[in-house]
Nucleic acid binder design. Sequence first.
DNA 1: GAATTTAATATGTACAAACATAGTGATTTA
DNA 2: TAAATCACTATGTTTGTACATATTAAATTC
Lengths: 243, 243
Amino acid sequence: MKIALNHKSPIPLHIQAEELLRRMIADPQFQNGKLLPNEIDLANQLAISRTTLRQALNKLVYEGLLIRKKGVGTKVADAMISSKSVNWLSFSQEMKARGIPIKNFELHVSWIYPEEVIANFFNIKTDQKILKLERLRGRPEGPFVYFVSYFHPRTGLTGEEDFKRPLYDILQADYNIISELSKEEISAKAADKFIAAKLETEPGSPILFRKRFVYDQADRPIEYNLGYYKADSFVYTVESRRG
Amino acid sequence: MKIALNHKSPIPLHIQAEELLRRMIADPQFQNGKLLPNEIDLANQLAISRTTLRQALNKLVYEGLLIRKKGVGTKVADAMISSKSVNWLSFSQEMKARGIPIKNFELHVSWIYPEEVIANFFNIKTDQKILKLERLRGRPEGPFVYFVSYFHPRTGLTGEEDFKRPLYDILQADYNIISELSKEEISAKAADKFIAAKLETEPGSPILFRKRFVYDQADRPIEYNLGYYKADSFVYTVESRRG
DNA sequence: GAATTTAATATGTACAAACATAGTGATTTA
DNA sequence: TAAATCACTATGTTTGTACATATTAAATTC
């Protein structure tokens, strides 16, 4: 394992250390309750201060990936939670897995000036155009979900891509961007006129609304995604185990 | 607000600071996007170092209760109720942490013959009565969630318990059952007449519907829970990392 | 008057140093 | 032998300091 950080890089050292620790966690070498190197040694090896190393460790402890014990050491937590694989399937993969035939009703690509919320999430100015992708998808009988995606300029997407391929394939294969982390917010709301028209339903009818924030390997924002699901067309499942 | 920490206490200063910050978060004074005092001033007021204060702040930022912005300041996150899959706080604990006052509108205990779905989940016959717990809860202004829970006989619950205490406390403290694993399904649906009446809204209005399957230490089913949330009163957040 | 520069302010990153405390195991003591 | 003590190790807490960077607003320049 490469055990050195780039002190010249603009990426903060504690972020780099965190990434390295994540790789260590994945390493079978540290799997079965074996202890990681102690903080002082590890900090010395990485040529960073113990404080900075602890910043990285703290985050992973918060996430439940590491367990620290005073006077003893730090070890990798027992693996848990399996909702990940389900969560990380793309829409089309997910439907395919359930044997649901998919029809693409609309696909619209445009370059727009981002709203403040989005610019804020992407950490860019509102005067820089970004790629917007709208998709209406569903069963052959009719649409049941309307997606809107916004992409950070750093993705390099031109808008000319073949969006019939899974999006995360395009990003990974053609632009070497791996969606690493996603945060989602699920809520219910009533359909407004626009959404109701798209989904061929009545304004005011219940919609499962899903916001999705996607980050890359370095925890940099790459996609902001909104999904409007017709009620009863979609169930979101989560499995969690006490830490 | 008492704005002093006990430097003699064995409780670490950053924990005390965290508690104080939680109280500040609950304070209407800081509610509507107003900024908290800046870190340096606040640290001085509390007579602790900025580093120690930041230790407390970090935790609350991680929990999503505070939002920090470089060059601007720190503010309380919008009080949209949210649930972290990571986090095993009960409903009331969670609301308390966010400083949202909770009112219990109804609490109804009964013994019923289970429907087939439930008997199936519990792996019991439908001719054995089980405990059903219905609760209507919300803010002082009005209810926003209606819960229905069914418990496996193995929990030992008699129905005489003080259900104002957190449920998971009762199970753990009095019956030595630890809820270890939960599977959830989230979807949207329209309120039927019964639910609409409970939640004081219109039939047909959007509802976030959450089914929850809870298992104990030995992966045996112990609770079947249904939650009907008024739209826009509840956001379900999930964070997942590629496995 | 509009555009640019500058200064003030607040959070972000990073280091070094010191002492506290919990766990472990070896050593000493009753 | 069993119990108490002690030293060692690793994490936990806390401070002080310094500089970096994003944001905003005021001052300056064109």
